[in-house]
Computed example of a mutant assay.
Amino acid sequence: MFTIGEFSKLGRISPRMLRYYDAMGLLRPTRIGENGYRYYEAAQLETLAEIETLKDYGFALSEIGELLTLSGQELAVRLHRRRLAAYDEIYTLRKKLRQMEDAMMKMEKCNLLKDQYHVIVMETPAQRVYGIRRKINISETGDLFEELYKKVDELGLTRCGAAQQVYLGEEFSYESMDIEAQVEVSGEHPDVKVIPARLCVATTHIGPFEGLHNAYDAICSWLAEHPEYKVIGPSVERYLKDVDMVKDEEELETGILFPVQKLQ
């Protein structure tokens, strides 16, 4: 038998926490002496380890007493539920981080945008694309790309690169966006067009689409600091990792490109 002090050293846990576990009925001493001293057996170290593991998994102490009584199969079910809950917690934390970053950007916008977004000037290669142009509400974007992919299949074309959205209107409007949904394709069709190689100012946004405005702000700030470049065409959102490629929207990757000309 071990005294509470000896047992706490072996289990790497404080005597105060052992007394708390005793009060909760999670881990009672094997014997309490006439002097009130608590004594534990070596076998109880395994129970203590199980308690600490379940606590690390995020289970509340009020749940752990029941969990210790479950069979292996029953415990596996509970662990699966806890795993799903942990993913939800991660998603919520990531969302809060994004919100904090947005708030911080409003306070220190210029410096934070430079830290988060690396704006570059790049020569984009030529693309062979098939596209569908529509005036839509922003909520209809997903439907437009579904229509695009269906049409590509019907025409016997093969997707061979990223999809992208080109903003063609003179003004931006959530209610009536003039856009062309495009996707790189292989195969021949009269409506397949070639976008020539061109110079672009670009950056990449990682995360939900709701934060794309920060990437646009970063490029606008960069252009304001580099008046030698002039925008000569509509902006492009290129979906490098779209919703079909990731499990979590935090993993989305979207390229923002503005065709430019360097002034002499």
Rank of each mutant, 00 (worst) to 15 (best):
L68R: 00
L68Y: 04
L68V: 03
T69K: 10
T69C: 11
S71V: 01
S71E: 09
G72S: 04
Q73T: 15
Q73K: 15
Q73L: 15
E74P: 01
E74R: 03
E74C: 10
R78K: 06
L79F: 05
H80V: 14
R81A: 13
R81Y: 06
R81I: 02
R82Q: 07
R82I: 03
R82T: 05
A85M: 08
A85G: 06
A86D: 12
A86L: 11
A86Q: 11
Y87P: 00
D88P: 02
D88N: 08
D88E: 14
E89W: 05
E89L: 10
I90F: 03
I90E: 04
Y91T: 13
Y91M: 12
T92F: 06
L93G: 04
R94C: 04
K95I: 10
K96A: 15
K96V: 14
K96C: 06
L97V: 08
L97F: 13
R98L: 15
R98N: 05
M100E: 14
E101M: 12
D102S: 07
A103L: 15
A103I: 15
A103V: 05
M104G: 02
M104R: 13
M104K: 02
M104Q: 02
K106R: 12
K106W: 08
M107T: 13
M107R: 13
M107W: 12
M107N: 12
E108F: 13
K109R: 15
